[in-house]
């Protein structure tokens, strides 16, 4: 009986604290392959190396990838391993060559929507999850204008930034800060809005 090969080419792709473990699929013609993923944090590997914990979403899974975001919940190196099964057959474990630490995640500038409500500058930021805070910089578009900075923690809802003066244009840029790993994303492109001028009362 042919021994089921272990999955190969394990790697982790991590962007904005979403971590995806991937591997090359095991092919057995006519069969559906299931995969089991397990993880081990630094504590387990140091104090209880025999202990592996089944992944939250991939015990088992069909596709050659696994979202391990809910499993990696500390900023320490994690060992990860995968094995394939079909019927009663189970492959050997294949372990990620280098432990994964979430502080290596790629941080991208967040998506934002800048609007105004009368003279009020309002921003809505994408919901990237509880790990994220947003550092919002906004300024009046004129030479030498002072840049105001605000830390915004609300996600997915319009947040008041500041009050604008009639007839002026204001610009906004934002970057994320991830407290768990102490890192920032690059700033987004600036977006600007113009405020309608206020109709001045007739001077007699």
């Amino acid at each position: 009986v042919a021994i089921l090969p272990a999955p190969q080419n394990l790697s982790v792709q991590s962007t904005n604290m979403k971590h995806l473990l991937m591997w090359s699929p095991v092919i057995v013609p006519g069969e559906i392959i299931y995969y089991f993923v397990e993880y081990q944090g630094e504590y387990e590997s140091l104090y209880m190396s025999h202990i592996w914990i089944p992944s939250s979403w991939c015990s088992p899974t069909e596709g050659p990838e696994c979202d391990i975001t809910d499993d990696v919940t500390a900023t320490v190196p994690y060992n990860l391993r995968v094995r394939a099964t079909v019927g009663a057959q189970t492959s050997a474990w294949s372990t990620l060559q280098h432990p994964f630490n979430r502080n290596s995640t790629v941080l991208t500038p967040p998506v934002m929507e800048v609007t105004k409500d009368g003279f009020h500058l309002v921003i809505k930021l994408e919901d990237l999850g509880p790990q994220f805070e947003f550092l919002v910089a906004y300024w009046r578009r004129e030479p030498g204008a002072k840049e105001h900075v605000k830390v915004v923690k609300s996600r997915g809802i319009p947040v008041h930034l500041g009050t604008m003066e009639p007839g002026a244009a204001y610009c906004v840029k934002v970057r994320t800060f991830v407290k768990a790993i102490g890192r920032h994303s690059p700033f987004s492109q600036a977006e600007c809005v113009k405020v309608q001028g206020e109709t001045l009362p007739l001077t007699l």
Binding site: T115, D117, G118, H120, S154, I157, P158, V159, H160
Partner: peptide, 26 residues
């Protein structure tokens, strides 16, 4: 959270102190 019934827009603000003045309203 503040809802402008004329523009049908809502926006919110986190505050720690106990007074807040919303100026430049319609």
């Amino acid at each position: 959270s503040i809802y402008n019934t004329k523009s049908n827009r809502t926006w919110s603000q986190y505050v720690t102190n106990h007074t807040l003045v919303l100026s430049w309203l319609e």
